[in-house]
């Protein structure tokens, strides 16, 4: 079981590096986004030490830089891959392998993410510098919440891949998912700034574990028991998503249509 998944992960990583211009543009885009967010938030904070929620400008910049770095590395590619392969019928080959479709896709994503980390390595010092990110007081809590948040992100992406077996077209859903997940992950505005009902909604959805929660742990906005609770809820989300994926995948098998003759 390990070798097939390692093979898919290797292909996912190689895929990340297939186009050099993409690699360069991605690094430039990440650094530019962090710079722009720094400019906007520095302007909004002008003359104030911290906002009413007690978040200093320095902590906010560190949070935003980290959240964007995380989002950039962990944004899933598999909905796009599945979309293309279902549309062209090449998903036939994925389904005809002795290894399951979902483990193949998850392994591909893991390899792609690892490739993304390598790709962004040159940009990380710049982001850390621009974001004035200093070492965290909760390294284990940060690693745990980030790793579990990543698993949630991959499982949500797998759900979109499976939905493609019904709709045959996941382009719009993928785009919507990307927008919604980035917004509710708090990559542009920390969730603690979300007003009223929007804040309640953001708190109830799982997207915050992909950005806000690990970044907030890193900068010290969440600590102690809050970290423990976040980890427990993440594990709960993973269990729930695993159940939903299992149930939907069983039905998806019977919905398979391979496009074209």
């Amino acid at each position: 079981m390990i070798r097939p998944l390692a093979g898919m992960a290797r292909v996912g990583m190689r895929f990340q590096f297939a186009y050099r211009s993409d690699v360069i543009m991605s690094v430039v885009a990440l650094v530019a986004q962090v710079f722009l967010l720094r400019m906007v938030w520095t302007s909004l904070y002008s003359g104030r030490e911290s906002d009413p929620r007690g978040l200093t400008l320095e902590a906010l910049l560190a949070y935003l830089s980290l959240a964007n770095l995380q989002a950039f590395v962990t944004t899933p590619i598999i909905p796009m891959i599945a979309h293309f392969r279902i549309r062209t019928g090449t998903v036939f080959f994925d389904l005809s392998r002795p290894t399951g479709y979902l483990p193949q896709m998850a392994a591909f994503q893991a390899g792609h993410t690892a490739g993304g980390l390598l790709m962004l390595a040159p940009a990380i010092p710049v982001v850390l510098l621009v974001g004035t990110i200093t070492p965290t007081e909760h390294p284990i809590g940060y690693a745990a919440t980030l790793a579990l948040g990543y698993v949630i992100s991959v499982m949500m992406s797998l759900l979109i891949c499976v939905i493609g077996f019904w709709t045959l077209e996941t382009g719009a859903i993928s785009l919507l998912y990307r927008l919604v997940s980035h917004f509710f992950a708090g990559t542009m505005v920390p969730l603690s700034f979300f007003p009223g009902a929007l804040g309640v909604l953001a708190d109830a959805l799982p997207f915050k574990y992909m950005g806000y929660v690990p970044a907030a742990v890193y900068v010290g906005q969440l600590s102690g028991g809050q970290i423990g609770r976040a980890v427990a809820v993440e594990i709960g989300w993973i269990a729930a998503l695993a159940g939903v994926l299992w149930a939907i995948w069983r039905r998806a098998h019977h919905k398979v249509v391979i496009q074209g003759g």
Binding site: R3, P4, A6, G7, M8, V11, R14, R97, P98
Partner: peptide, 18 residues
């Protein structure tokens, strides 16, 4: 795999079928 050298796809087949 469209974007990768042929050998990568062949190695992947070797891995997938162990």
């Amino acid at each position: 795999w469209w974007d990768l050298p042929l050998i990568d796809s062949l190695r992947l087949v070797g891995d997938l079928y162990d």
